[in-house]
Amino acid sequence: MNYCSLGSLIGLVGLLPALAQNGDRKGHDKMGKIVPEELIPPAPVLTVEEALKTFTIEKGFIIEPVAAEPLVDKPVALTFDPSGRMWVCEMRGYMPDIDGKLENMATGRIAILEDTTGDGKADKRTTFLDKIVLPRAISLVPGGILYGDQNNLYFVARNGDKPKGKAVVVDDKFAPGGNVEHKTNGLMSGIDNWLYNAKSNARFKFIPGENKIIKDTTAFRGQWGISRDNFGRLFHNSNSTLLIGDRVLPNLLNGNKLAKMKAKTTERIGSNAVFPGRVTPGLNRAYISSHNGYSSNTIDPKTFKLTNATGACGPVIYRGNNLPSSVNGNGFVCESSAQLIKMIGLEDKDGTLKGSHPL
């Protein structure tokens, strides 16, 4: 069993923070190596057991494996059913080579992962649906599931753990344009029973019995992942902004469609500073450095570590009770290129959201 790094796994669940660049940026012809090779530690492929010994964990937290290969393959999005089982989108066709060729092959799957022994680890897999082109979003709805692929949003009825009939397109403009990196993802249920997305200004409501959806406009949010707090406010981010939050409930200021509200409804929460535990040579635009004659630095020219987020993804507002109570309501964001997860403390006061960095 091989293990992909925590950064890679969470980056995939948060929907893919990197894609091969097509050519060089104009004026960016100085791309000399920045990090001395003798400072770059080995990065061998590890088993799950070996990898667990390499993590640095904050006091009060633990890390445990839940699922890994071969039980699951290239997970990018998941949701839970009432029995606590995970329904997982496996984007197996993503970047089969450095040029992304053959990504349009229908190799993606939706799998159900289940813990049958009660030890907190998935030990049973059921493939619910296969032959999907780059599946990226999933939501369980009455009588079936909604899922998004590279272009469309589908409904497929189900009989238990098996699909009943063929998938039906309910929106053929779910994920329009762009590459894999810049397409709709999410289908997260809000407290108003609408399904919200990142990298999109559309929200959806499923109509049980009719197996149809209502599509409505909402504010454009985020890039890779979406979450919400106990009040129902939505949180999202972009590659270089760790966390952005809505000040009010979604569409609250859109009651009258004839009135165009210009009020600021979102807030960037906290700084984008990150603190990697090792040098970070493998970054997008890491060559931008004073060592190469540029006026700015992607990585610190002295420590050779990333200073601010460049691959943020998968934001989560923690609302459970398994972690210390002091972090309930805080944000957790993966910076996959630096292989870390950052906690952001949330403060809500006088209609303003602020972020702190308690760790």
Rank of each mutant, 00 (worst) to 15 (best):
N151W: 01
K131A: 06
I213M: 03
E69L: 08
P208A: 10
S271A: 09
T127Y: 01
A77T: 03
H357G: 03
M91F: 03
K101R: 13
K349P: 03
N237W: 07
D130I: 00
D161I: 09
W224K: 15
L6M: 14
D130C: 00
I10V: 12
V169F: 00
I213F: 01
S326E: 12
L187A: 12
Q21S: 09
L113W: 02
D192G: 12
N284Y: 05
H28S: 01
R203E: 01
I269V: 15
T303M: 07
G178S: 04
N201R: 12
P36M: 12
T241P: 05
P324R: 10
I145Y: 06
T217S: 13
R109N: 02
F204G: 12
D97P: 10
P135G: 00
N2S: 09
T107N: 02
G60H: 11
F304C: 07
H236K: 06
V279T: 14
D29G: 15
I98F: 07
T47S: 15
S337Y: 10
D123M: 05
A18Y: 13
K183F: 01
P208S: 13
A273W: 02
S271M: 03
E181C: 09
E90A: 00
Y94F: 15
G178A: 04
D229V: 10
T79R: 11
L15C: 12
R285C: 02
G320A: 02
N308T: 14
G27P: 09
V156Y: 05
E90D: 00
R228F: 10
F206V: 12
P42M: 11
N230G: 14
F204D: 07
A157P: 06
K173I: 03
I63L: 07
C4D: 11
K101C: 01
G165P: 01
R285K: 14
I317F: 05
P65I: 06
S271C: 04
P315V: 09
V279A: 12
I62V: 12
F80V: 03
G7C: 08
I244W: 04
D81E: 11
H182D: 15
P142Y: 10
F275K: 03
K74V: 09
N179E: 09
S326R: 10
E49W: 08
F332K: 10
T47I: 10
L234R: 10
L78F: 15
A273F: 04
G186K: 05
I62H: 08
L346Q: 07
E90I: 01
R85P: 02
S325A: 14
D123R: 04
I112L: 05
E90P: 00
V170N: 01
A338E: 08
P96Y: 04
L16T: 11
R203M: 11
